[in-house]
Design a protein around this nucleic acid. Structure first.
Lengths: 202, 202
DNA sequence: TATATCTTGTTACAATTTGTAACTTAATTA
DNA sequence: TAATTAAGTTACAAATTGTAACAAGATATA
């Protein structure tokens, strides 16, 4: 108790934990025995460290997808929402497969959504028909369109949200009745049966 | 060749690959044998699928860190850079451990940097002393400050950039001479020997 | 058309890793 | 002081993984 530190010790960064993270990022595997051997501890000890970090919700293993390789397009929607809308937006889009991140902001805009689409026409549809058209209580909005992505851009994609049996999208609409979808300007929602893009599950 | 599809088949999403991704996201492990057994193929086949996706740079396994749990603060810096600066910024900050993402934009701003810090004072220092002060050719800038983070926010953190032996930071400055660092308004760069925050390697 | 190559799969066996249980020690908390 | 939590140990059986050699089909290539 002799040292006053403003930071809680949540994540201990010693040689062993760093090696766990790095080995994982290198080849997507943790070889408990190998790491244990290299650091003079038992494989059970490495296993426990790793599993405890996950159990305590401090780290989460994940598969990142190369958005450049798939030629996906990204955009950010900035919103100023009134207090009611502010509460509703996160709920409404919490299962949207196109939203990568959703953040509260302080300042000019109070909400930020990062989303992707498979081509630029679909970005346009999502921005206009899917989102703004559906949202009540938007005082102001702005969009940031991303240019060419850097050579390799790895981002997390929620594959477990891709339920392509559904008539309606998770946000509660139906592509069948959407003008952009009918005119083939949009490939549809990847979490509905009408989707016809590269994330179609075969 | 009978079907004309605008999308290249890069990532095949069949039951097996989906199960690989989902099993990985669940517990950070891929049990080749188990998945193979459940889908009626050999464990070697699962191993090959997984390793080929990585080898071809389509997916990347990664450890995400719970930024909410660590109480990290996030911010976005929007920049309009002239053509020379535009080329230099990415290079300069390519190894910055605080930058989570760096994107080119089309429009009002042409560059976007997402960065994090361990407390708000440090966010301020990074924005002022570290970044804007160091950058030539900035025509316009804006900052988006993130409010409280959602309960669990998992983001990728580059642990292999945390080399804490260095006198100078990867962006080429030295915390020792920084006013904010001296006045203890900033905890320093996590990729230098002067760093004194929760990512200190013990 | 024939040939090469890439993709995706197979089997079988040895080597290695993992899971589990029971236990130890130290530090922290009530 | 006692209880709990954290971080580690050993040993053995069970299960997974790596490897090599091979096969079938699709796709390029000369």
């Amino acid at each position: 108790m002799d040292e006053k530190n403003q930071f809680k010790k949540i994540l201990k960064l010693d040689k062993i934990n760093l090696e766990i993270f790095n080995s994982f990022t290198r080849d997507g595997k943790i070889n408990y025995s190998k790491i244990g051997r290299e650091h003079g501890v038992s494989h059970v000890s490495i296993k426990n460290r790793y599993e405890n970090l996950i159990k305590k919700n401090i780290i989460k293993p994940s598969i990142l997808v190369n958005f450049s390789k798939l030629d996906f397009k990204l955009a950010i929607l900035l919103l100023e929402l009134d207090s009611e809308a502010y509460e509703n937006v996160k709920a409404k889009y919490s299962n949207c497969p196109r939203i990568l991140f959703s953040f509260n902001l302080i300042g000019e805009y109070n909400h930020l959504l990062v989303f992707f689409a498979e081509n630029l026409e679909t970005v346009e549809t999502i921005f206009n028909s899917c989102m703004l058209y559906n949202l009540k209580g938007v005082r102001k909005s702005n969009i940031l369109i991303f240019g060419s992505l850097s050579e390799d851009l790895f981002l997390p994609l929620n594959f477990n949200q891709l339920d392509q049996q559904n008539e309606n999208t998770p946000c509660g609409t139906c592509c069948k009745f959407c003008k952009s979808f009918i005119k083939e300007q949009c490939i549809g929602c990847p979490a509905s049966k009408y989707y016809k893009g590269p994330l179609k599950i075969t």
